[in-house]
């Protein structure tokens, strides 16, 4: 939390799927360098919220504003498709639970990392490759695997590769939806370590959706608890986990062992 002006400013965000609520009246500010965890039971609207914030789905009401690199706070709805696309592939990163959403499984690791550079205009093969190799090392994947495709990678390596792909363009904000879901505990722990280090070193802001309160404890500064599409409690991570106010949060905390 290094800056006074929020990077992402969310107000009254609401989404209906027909008559079923996706999420309702969600509002918060995310500051530069800050990590917010979104927790809640299955179906509570966590992934929906992430999709709305990144404009992969349209919102029914509310606004999402983002601080551009020139310092201006812009309503994402007022940006053109092209401007949003540039944000998505340069200033934002994504780590999905299902690596096949974030990676091209039949393209080499180097090609996957290079895609964002090439989309941003890089046209020197040697430079692109050197940058890809550097990022593989950074996420602790053997550089000798640079020409292998992610479908030959383990689950943990795929998540590492997604992280490298996201970070190669020097983004300011990372969206993660269950980035370590489905991995076994020891693999998960090492990836969380890696993420924590990168977030600090690079001064990244992050929104991380997780079921796992241990993940939230380890990575986040603040927590938002969602239930049935609404944020029912939010606050500093330690406060929410150690002294939950809402009965639902108390249930959540007591039913899962914190890390």
């Amino acid at each position: 939390m290094t800056d006074d002006a929020p990077l992402l400013s969310v107000r009254g965000v609401t989404k209906w799927y027909g008559r079923r609520l996706g999420c309702r009246d969600v509002g918060f500010d995310l500051y530069p360098g800050e990590v917010i965890a979104i927790v809640g039971e299955s179906g509570s609207g966590k992934s929906t919220l992430l999709r709305l914030l990144t404009r992969q789905a349209d919102i029914d009401a509310g606004t999402v504003s983002y601080r551009m690199r020139d310092g201006s706070l812009r309503d994402l709805s007022a940006l053109t498709d092209a401007e949003r696309a540039v944000l998505r592939r340069t200033d934002w990163g994504f780590v999905h639970q299902d690596a096949s959403f974030g990676l091209r499984m039949s393209v080499s690791a180097g090609g996957n990392i290079g895609e964002r550079l090439m989309s941003a205009g890089a046209r020197h093969y040697g430079d692109i490759r050197a940058e890809a190799a550097r990022w593989l090392a950074r996420v602790e994947i053997d550089q000798a695997r640079i020409d292998d495709t992610p479908d030959t990678f383990s689950g943990g390596m795929r998540q590492r590769l997604q992280i490298a792909c996201s970070l190669v363009t020097g983004p300011r904000l990372i969206f993660m939806d269950e980035p370590t879901g489905g991995l076994d505990v020891s693999v998960q722990a090492r990836i969380l370590d890696l993420l924590r280090g990168l977030v600090v070193d690079l001064g990244l802001s992050a929104l991380i959706v997780t079921h796992d309160l241990g993940v939230a404890r380890l990575l986040s500064h603040r927590i938002m608890v969602m239930k049935a599409g609404e944020v029912i409690e939010s606050g500093l991570t330690d406060r929410v986990l150690d002294d939950p106010r809402e009965p639902y949060t108390q249930l959540l905390v007591s039913s899962i062992l914190p890390a």
Binding site: G111, G114, S119
Partner: peptide, 10 residues
């Protein structure tokens, strides 16, 4: 957005 085509050449 033609980065993808360069991925093929890469």
């Amino acid at each position: 957005d033609y980065g993808l085509m360069h991925v093929k050449l890469y």
